[in-house]
Write a protein that binds this DNA or RNA. Structure first.
Lengths: 143, 143
DNA sequence: GTGTATGCAAACAGTTTGCACAGAC
DNA sequence: GTCTGTGCAAACTGTTTGCATACAC
């Protein structure tokens, strides 16, 4: 676990205490898994991983935990076009670069791809989700 | 119905004939509704509208029809973070402006929100999907 | 000890599927 | 007449909820 991850986990514990939420092993496990994973797991996938440590954990608990984490702003729901919701502990605004050949997904620093104005068509912009689809350097060589 | 919509509908009829698919009133109705609507209705919403014309239509038929339309490339599935899938008959590349309060979705001409370079991090860019989340003018007033 | 979080099972919503019949060809 | 498309209901999947118990405080 990196220093940054440890820091985030401690911040989570702090916020829970402030809000009167209990620090349960399940909550810590869910957040730790999300911090460690570089992909964007579904609730089911998180559940499977928590189960390795706490075999009696319930799927409902994982759902409730990610909801709590999202409300506290520690994780973000990822807009995906699959059927189930996915979560990401990287709460910095960032874009995604997807290789259509090999499926690799790279996180992009926000504004590396493009910049969105603060207001568009009278809408007050809160966030954005940008997926750029293309061919990565190594797949370009394969052609 | 605009000339463009009529043209698209005729194209659909033509492609169906080529593929040996039957031209049923339900199919025409679903595509016509999607062509006319400027938002991105859920299957349920399309179903409600078809029912006004064909009261005995089944929800399953609407699901099957949008699947067919998508396979033929006449409509696109819209990535959304609500619980149900939405469809769009505008198959040109374009961005989306989503109101997080009321769920309204506006189409944005591609590059109205932002411009993506032809190459990012060595990736050859093919297409992109941009969703801008914010609060629409009328919801801003409601606060 | 108190009260929130958990585990379980049942409920729910959106979507898909199997099957007999209807209707486009 | 043939064979695909439809309508109905039942099945399925992802998610939420109610309730009794467990456990963090």
């Amino acid at each position: 676990m990196t220093a940054h991850q440890k820091e985030r986990l401690e911040e989570f514990v702090k916020v829970c205490k402030e809000k009167g939420l209990k620090i349960t092993p399940q909550r810590l496990a869910v957040y730790e898994i999300l911090l460690r994973r570089k992909d964007h797991p579904t609730v089911e996938e998180i559940y499977e991983e928590v189960k390795e440590i706490y075999p009696f954990v319930s799927l409902a608990t994982v759902y409730r935990t990610v909801e709590t984490l999202e409300e506290l702003g520690f994780i973000k729901r990822v807009a995906y076009w699959g059927s189930s919701v996915r979560y990401d502990a990287n709460i910095q605004e960032h874009d995604h670069l997807v290789c259509v050949m090999c499926g690799a997904i790279l996180d992009l620093k926000a504004d590396a791809g493009c910049r969105v104005p603060e207001e568009v068509n009278g809408f007050k912009v809160l966030s954005r989700s940008l997926y750029i689809y293309g061919v990565c350097p190594s797949c370009q060589k394969k052609d």
